[in-house]
Nucleic acid binder design. Structure first.
Lengths: 353, 353
DNA sequence: CTGTTAGCGCATTCAT
DNA sequence: ATGAATGCGCTAACAG
């Protein structure tokens, strides 16, 4: 920096001021300085800045499961966003089944100088639960929860709306007997998706039938069994909205085993646009969320909140930022089979298969 | 640090010496100092250390594909290992299809002060290729390649041996007609697995039959088609070793569709122990590698190499560290069906199904 | 609007 | 074996 100052014929202080966009610097100087900065390829020394009082934010990121297909996007997104902000980020595994342990982990992070928490979905809800009585010690942001999480900011897609839309697409194709293979209610996203499913039916004055909804964990075989239950119902469903792509794959497997044509006889919709959505045959219509972009936004939001919180430790933000999703159409859905549409007027037309 | 020094009645210098395990410090002082360090909860200020000359290592991590199920483990492993070493790590997306671009990316990282490269498998090979003529500008380590990568250190499991072992397990169960659903040859791990398959057969004096090996990309449907080819062969294979778990799932789907019982009539083995291995039915016998541990070791090895390289810029290491794998037995394999064992003596016994 | 002074927390060098 | 002085690169507070 000294070199830059000398080259530009000013003092170091002015250089510093220019670099920080401070108001008290003349136009003439500013340009001269910026020019030298470029030419000399000057880049400020972060350690010196920190030592001199600038304090960069340190974020903490808590995750539960490395095997979650989206955690890598969350890692990547937070890392790139954090490096842009010159922020540090330390990543830890958290146990969400033990509220006391989770509380302890979070307190320790706060004590160790971490000023903001990035909490991907199941962790966010668990943390909110663990700190139900007292507020969180530091600002936090929930990444991709199904609903806003109390006590922290939330960055999410409107999953309920997405489910509504995708089920409406099935309705537009003439389907009326639409089943839902629901995911575990411990995941708030699954609740949102279920709600969206119900709302879409009601919006067309179709009263949802409880037996058309079957729950399953996110395991392939359990999903196949649940799908079997749905496929044995009479009158048979002509479409199934699965709570995620794995479960949609289960539905397809169950359908193939029964020689039910997809999408000819059964339309299938998933959620998440995970790799399986492409790999499965036929390609799966599903809902895509850009986790990496969402996470980057989350980091930026959290950063602002941390700055505000530095000025006023009582600062809390529970802003809810909703980002767009995208419905990815692949061949797994088609028009409702004709026999079924007719069944609406004469329900006896159809005989047992 | 000053406080610690005063509390222990010594100078700051002695505290520093104690903390760095320097030889020139008396036993008496050492203990007094350490006690105060604990009591006051002193933790050295990294920025000050750096400013005063200590330079922590900065690693770069290049990845190709967020959707790779193991990249999250690689992220997590490098982050935890790096934080233990007080090292920085910056993660970037790389394009491995364009050698020139990759070269440029790596050069830029080196110029920006990064002193070591963490290269998960397909990137490592691409980087070696891109720097075939000139050596890499900084030390690098390949994470989980199929074979040692020239020009850099390698941390890997012996995939060829693992494949050998798992195919031998099939042979022990009486299988002799064993097919291999091979993965893309662009992945060195797949080549190693294929080699292991061949070696296992030859070790039992079974000459591998070329038609028993079918190649496929890591896509579900392509795998199903490839599996169909294998299952149509006469005499039919009684076991299939798939190059990864996705392809093994494809084999199972193809088998189910043909009503071939697994493991009754067909045994199936995968590789990677990815989530699908558990989810699939029946549970998949597969090879487990601990990517997180492997990555942590990789960071430590790279760290040492970087230190050596600092002293001598011409230092190069291509050490090859081989870590253990684990064969996970699940119900997808069983004894070879009897009819087939008999077929070895009277090959006409079996009629078309 | 611009320049000067002082010090952030530590390690290195030299002296004791 | 231990301690005192000096400076790393930068910014905050002040003086001009």
């Amino acid at each position: 920096m000294k070199e830059v100052a000398e080259a530009a014929g000013v003092s170091m202080m002015s250089v510093s001021n220019v670099l920080h966009n401070r108001p008290n610097v003349g136009e003439v100087l500013r340009e001269r300085v910026l020019k030298q900065v470029k030419e000399l390829g000057y880049v400020p020394n972060r350690s010196a800045q920190e030592l001199a009082g600038v304090s960069y934010v340190r974020f903490g990121l808590l995750y539960t499961n490395v095997r979650n297909p989206f955690i890598a996007s969350v890692f990547a997104g937070s890392l790139t966003a954090a490096s842009r902000l010159r922020a540090d980020i330390s990543i830890h595994l958290a146990n969400i089944d033990n509220p006391a342990a989770l509380r302890k982990t979070i307190r320790q992070m706060a004590d160790s100088g971490i000023e903001g928490l990035l909490l991907p979905s199941p962790v966010a809800e668990a943390a909110a639960q663990a700190f139900k009585r007292k507020p969180l010690p530091i600002p936090a942001v929930a990444i991709a929860p199904g609903f806003p999480v109390p006590g922290m900011a939330s960055l999410r897609c409107d999953e309920q709306q997405a489910a509504f839309e995708v089920v409406s697409a099935l309705l537009d194709l003439g389907h009326t007997a639409i089943g839902h293979l629901a995911g575990p209610t411990s995941q708030s996203g699954c609740i949102a998706r279920h709600n969206g499913y119900l709302a879409a039916l009601r919006a067309r004055s179709i009263e949802p039938r409880p037996e058309y909804v079957v729950k399953s964990e996110f395991k392939f075989q359990e999903g196949v069994q649940a799908a079997d239950v749905l496929l044995e119902l009479e009158p048979r469903v002509t479409a199934i909205f699965a709570a995620n792509d794995t479960l949609a794959a289960s539905v397809m497997a169950a359908a193939h085993r029964r020689s039910i044509a997809v999408p000819g006889t059964l339309s299938v919709v998933g959620y998440d646009d995970s790799p399986t959505a492409e790999y499965v045959w036929p390609g799966l219509t599903t809902v895509h969320q850009d986790f990496e972009a969402l996470t980057e936004r989350a980091v930026n939001v959290l950063h602002k909140n941390v700055i505000a919180w530095r000025n006023d430790q009582s600062f809390r933000s529970d802003q809810d930022v909703v980002l767009p999703y995208e419905i990815v159409r692949r061949p797994s859905i088609g028009k409702a089979p004709k026999a079924v549409i007719e069944r609406r007027t004469s329900s006896t037309l159809r005989s047992a298969t």
